[in-house]
Design a protein around this nucleic acid. Sequence first.
DNA 1: CGGCAAGGAATTGTCGACAAATAAAATACA
DNA 2: TGTATTTTATTTGTCGACAATTCCTTGCCG
Lengths: 233, 233
Amino acid sequence: MEETDKVTHRRGYGVSTVYETLRNEIIELKLAPGSPIDEQQLSDRFSLSRTPIREALVRLSADGLITTLTNRATIVSNIDFLGLSEFFDALTLMYRVTTRLGALNRTPDDIGKIRELQKDFALAVAERDVLAMISTNRDFHLAIATAGKNRYYVDLFTRLLDEGRRILRLYYSSFNDVLPRQYVGEHEDIIQAVINRDAETADRLASAHADQIVRQIRSYIASDGRQTADLKI
Amino acid sequence: MEETDKVTHRRGYGVSTVYETLRNEIIELKLAPGSPIDEQQLSDRFSLSRTPIREALVRLSADGLITTLTNRATIVSNIDFLGLSEFFDALTLMYRVTTRLGALNRTPDDIGKIRELQKDFALAVAERDVLAMISTNRDFHLAIATAGKNRYYVDLFTRLLDEGRRILRLYYSSFNDVLPRQYVGEHEDIIQAVINRDAETADRLASAHADQIVRQIRSYIASDGRQTADLKI
DNA sequence: CGGCAAGGAATTGTCGACAAATAAAATACA
DNA sequence: TGTATTTTATTTGTCGACAATTCCTTGCCG
């Protein structure tokens, strides 16, 4: 379990690799919410001093992915089930506004990237690879957001989608294959609206799409109380 | 100019003070955009080792307030005049959505705080203290946003308002006293809508208020090209 | 006189170690 | 036996120093 990731670090890039590695592990729930983070252990694992490790942790803390108790332990941030309404509200708004802007500002180049990622998503659905579905769905919508060319929205949307990935991973066993298939179709419609530069339709479709996803997650949480109860308060 | 801020630092709080101090100085343009940041100098000034200084800088970098070129200098982030449209777009949306949520979720306690801050703003306008106006206006709208109780919106709105403070400070000499007086009245109307829990009116008023502010800043920039030309590209 | 290379100075990223603060264990006491 | 208090151990925050990289100067050559 305690494998060293990389032995060589080009000076100045050690912090980035630690940051990105931990970030992924947190989002993919390889590091459980609430679990403590041992600086010494990370120091050994990455073959780095504690100083760059700590700088990476500061960045993660700024992202809200870890929580540092001053002079005490630092832990992986818990998923805030009480604030889920806020989360869904913001997520829906960002779905809408980024898709709208995507329709208005997309370039032909953007369309290509979006189509590519939609293909990946469809493939994941066809293969019933739930983890890949969660990941490719995120990339698909972020590509549209990027086409919208507003970094403030992209930043917030990224944060929200990644937080969503953590939540979805808790329930991914509950996935059935009827809803995802529907998502593929909804994505296609959204792409068409973006191509047509039809902001209104894009907005409406994104709104419905977001509602769909929110409803799905809500039903997971409601039907499977065991998982949430397992998490420490 | 090189005064030591604090000699004693309760262990674990040195980083916070450095972070907050520098953050304020950047937002208030005491540190000019593009100006280099000397770690050694800060180390002397705060009577701290370079390690905590660097951690504070990492946090500022995550906020986008400073830009770090790896293995090279780190500078105060430049104001992105080319991306102003994105900025205004996001700012307007956050004005709207936070005021709307404020109207829906405010408690009597929130109203008290909002009223208090509106008083501060009116006072600043009466005294023609432009710098205080910029600051109190920000606090007023953030109080409404806080009453809306959605941390995602509050976070983004804070970031946007602080970026706006940097921009406004560049042009604050251009302030005339007719528009600010109008703002006081608009604030009063917004407060009333929030009290009435009238989300639609709150939204509409916030939207108009935001447009007003955006128009004002735009006119400043248009009429005073010298300032923008002074900034390095 | 101008461009390029080598050398030196300054600055950044990283390290190992120490000290303060907290958590855990051991002991004393009721 | 349970609670309070001291002792020990672990972990965090900070420090001073070193090494790698970049910047700047100087000298060389065309």
